[in-house]
C-alpha cells in the first residue's frame, strides 16, 4: 500500500516536472529564436528560420538596422527619460500619500482611502481622449512631460505603500522624532522614507517596467518622430522600411527587450516577491 502510493506519487511528480519544463521552454523559446536570428543573415533565416547555432552576421544586421531613416537610440533615450521621471514621481508622491493615510488621523482619512480603492478600478482608456485634448490645449503634446507629470497620481501604488506601511512603520518612532523637535516633512523624508526603501524599490521596478512598455498613451500624445518612445518605434520594424530584412528585425526586437531582460534577471527575486504581495491584497 505504502509502496503503491509512493509509486503513484513518483508518477504524478514526473508528470508535473514534465509539464513545468515544457512551460519553461515555451517561455524561453521565442526569445531564444529571436536572439539567435539577430546574429544570422536574412538569407540564412530564409533557408532555415529556426536554428540553435548563432551566426556571424550581428554587425551586418546592426548596420541595416541603424542605417534607416529612424534613430533607435533616440527612442531608447525618450523611453528612459519617461520611465525614470514617472517612476520617481510615482514612488515619491505615492509614499507621501500613503504616509498621510497611515501616520495621521484626519476626518476624511477613511473616505479618502475608499475613494482611492474606487478610482483604482477605472481603466485609463476612459480618459484618453479628454487627456489628449487637455494636453493639446496646454501645449504638452509631443512633450515627454505629458507622460511624466500624470505619474504623481498612482492610486495602485498608494494602496501598495499603505499596506506595507501599516505592517512596518512603527508610529512610536514618529512620536519620538517629534519630541526631538523634528518637523513633520523632515520626519517623512529622513525617518519614514528609509524604512520604506524595500517597498519603494519593488514599486519602482513595476512602475518603471509599466512605463517603459506603455504603448497606448505615448502613441496618442507623441506624434513627432524624434519624440517617440521605444514601443512606438517597434511598430516601424514591421513597416515597409524593413521589408525582407529579417535579420535586422530580430536584432531590433532583441535590442528593445534586452534592457528588460537585464533588469528582470538581476532583480527577479524582488519582482516575484512584489507580484506575490498582490495576492495578499485580497
Amino acid at each position: 500500500m505504502t509502496l503503491e502510493k509512493r509509486n503513484g506519487n513518483v508518477l504524478v511528480k514526473t508528470l508535473i516536472y514534465i509539464v513545468c519544463i515544457f512551460l519553461a521552454v515555451l517561455s524561453l523559446f521565442p526569445f531564444v529564436v529571436m536572439a539567435i536570428n539577430a546574429t544570422r543573415s536574412t538569407y540564412q533565416i530564409q533557408q532555415h528560420a529556426v536554428s540553435l547555432i548563432p551566426s556571424t552576421h550581428l554587425m551586418d544586421n546592426f548596420k541595416v538596422y541603424t542605417g534607416k531613416s529612424f534613430d533607435p537610440m533616440r527612442g531608447f533615450l525618450n523611453s528612459l527619460i519617461v520611465a525614470i521621471g514617472a517612476t520617481a514621481l510615482t514612488v515619491y508622491f505615492s509614499t507621501l500619500t500613503a504616509y498621510a493615510l497611515v501616520a495621521y488621523r484626519w476626518k476624511l482619512r477613511e473616505p479618502f482611502f475608499a475613494f482611492i480603492l474606487a478610482v483604482m478600478m477605472i481603466p485609463g482608456i476612459v480618459t484618453s481622449i479628454g487627456m489628449y485634448q487637455f494636453m493639446y490645449r496646454i501645449h504638452l503634446t509631443n512633450n515627454l512631460l505629458s507622460l511624466i507629470l500624470p505619474a504623481i497620481y498612482a492610486p495602485g501604488a498608494v494602496f501598495f505603500f499603505r499596506q506595507f506601511m501599516l505592517a512596518s512603520l512603527p508610529l512610536e518612532l514618529l512620536d519620538s522624532a517629534r519630541i526631538d523637535g523634528s518637523k513633520e516633512f523632515y520626519t517623512f523624508n529622513h525617518i519614514a522614507m528609509p524604512i520604506m526603501k524595500p517597498a519603494m524599490a519593488t514599486q519602482g521596478i513595476f512602475t518603471f517596467v509599466y512605463t517603459w512598455n506603455n504603448l497606448f498613451m505615448p502613441s496618442i500624445l507623441l506624434t513627432k518622430d524624434n519624440m517617440k518612445t521605444m514601443p512606438i518605434m517597434v511598430a516601424m520594424l514591421k513597416g515597409d522600411i524593413y521589408k525582407r530584412e529579417h535579420g535586422a528585425i530580430y536584432l531590433g526586437l532583441t535590442l528593445t527587450v534586452l534592457p528588460l531582460f537585464i533588469v528582470y534577471f538581476s532583480l527577479s527575486k524582488y519582482i516575484i516577491a512584489g507580484v506575490a504581495l498582490g495576492g495578499v491584497k485580497g
Partner: peptide
C-alpha cells in the same frame, strides 16, 4: 519556474507581438 513563467509578462507587449 516562477521566474521563467512570469518572465514574458514584463517584456514589452509591442515587441512580443511583432516577434
Amino acid at each position: 519556474f516562477k521566474v521563467v513563467f512570469y518572465m514574458p509578462n514584463i517584456i514589452t507587449a509591442a515587441s512580443v507581438a511583432v516577434l
